[in-house]
Design a protein around this nucleic acid. Structure first.
Lengths: 199, 199
DNA sequence: AATTGTTTTAATCATTTGTTCAATAATGGG
DNA sequence: CCCATTATTGAACAAATGATTAAAACAATT
């Protein structure tokens, strides 16, 4: 019974995570979640009180997942810049390959509720004061390091955001996209280094 | 009266465009639109039949806006690659500075309804057969040109997608973001060229 | 087996939401 | 000025939706 309890609770969370990330908060109905989880509608409120509380729970996890991947990497003083970039790209592409809907969901919800994001992850100033930033500044003092972070994230994350566009345009299919992302693991670090070298 | 008709019709469209792009289809209520437009709720259905029809109208315009900017550029045979990249970046950053919510809205709705996107803009194969692609292939035959398009779009568009994150993290404010984007107009073409040169 | 606490179910409620409708006001042509 | 058309309004409806409740089923403890 203790086991069963966790079972249904986890079933609801899993179903909610799937639907929320896929369609967003407003488009996801509590009845959809119940059906997807194979449970009675009332159980959702029984375990999580309300749709909103359930959503906040899921969103917190997703935000931590999205940013948590790379925080240990960018803040680790013992890694040099090139290795840091390699790990950053590696981690991101790996995680997003498993969770393609993660970026658009996270970006959407941060836009809808920036405060929750700041509270959720102690977001402020982690990035700016990270050793990554200092290493970038050291390598190329002429350019605002935020540019490089935008480039690094953009090159890693944007393909997943725009995947539906490229798929619909028949530029890629599921397989060739996967192959492209595999190539990018090696290419992005190379590109980032050439960019960092150019003054 | 003819003028007045267009007036209210345009007021509704403008309000709908604002809310739909800001909050998406499901989170936008017809009553919100009516209030934002300062009109009676019934007029929405009077002029546009239904919420969905109004939405499709708006979305079509937004999709054309988002992709229409650059189609003339990437398909123009008379422009060489470097100039093409410059124009591409210039046009995108200019348009998105005026319409910061455009990218996330468009990407969201294409994911929700890829078919509508394909029908709306004759999306397929425009990109792959464009002169841009051939020019990229000519410059660097070793790498799939889709990578460069992803980089070019990613570097131009991703900052606007992630702007709420950087704002909430206090990495940028409204002014410094604007300044960064101005810098990027010049920097992205330089970066793209160094990337294209690296084999 | 009886009792207690927990989980699940079905029915129901109160709001919200998209839409319709009948009535009224405004507009413009004959 | 009158009339037909068009535009606008307020009230109302039906369906959808998040939430609650009371009862039943289940599990565990004594």
């Amino acid at each position: 019974m203790e086991e069963n309890k966790l079972d249904t609770e986890e079933k609801i969370k899993a179903a909610a995570a799937r639907l929320f990330t896929q369609k967003g908060y407003a488009a996801t109905k509590t009845r959809d979640i119940a059906e997807e989880a194979g449970i009675n509608l009332s159980l959702l409120n029984y375990y999580f009180r309300s749709k909103e509380k359930l959503f906040n729970l899921i969103m917190g996890e997703k935000i931590r997942q999205f940013f948590g991947i790379v925080v240990p990497v960018i803040t680790d003083d013992s890694l040099d810049l090139e290795l840091k970039i390699e790990l950053f790209v590696e981690k991101y592409i790996e995680t997003l390959t498993q969770n393609p809907d993660l970026p658009i969901f996270v970006l959407n919800e941060i836009r809808n509720d920036p405060k929750h994001f700041v509270e959720e992850i102690g977001a402020n100033k982690i990035l700016m004061s990270s050793s990554l930033m200092n290493q970038i500044r050291a390598k190329n003092p002429d350019i605002n390091p935020v540019h490089f972070v935008m480039n690094l994230m953009g090159m890693s994350v944007f393909p997943f955001l725009s995947k539906p566009v490229f798929m619909a345009s028949q530029v890629v299919d599921e397989n060739s996209f996967k192959a492209l992302m595999d190539e990018r693991r090696k290419l992005i670090p190379i590109w980032m280094n050439t960019i960092l070298g150019s003054k």
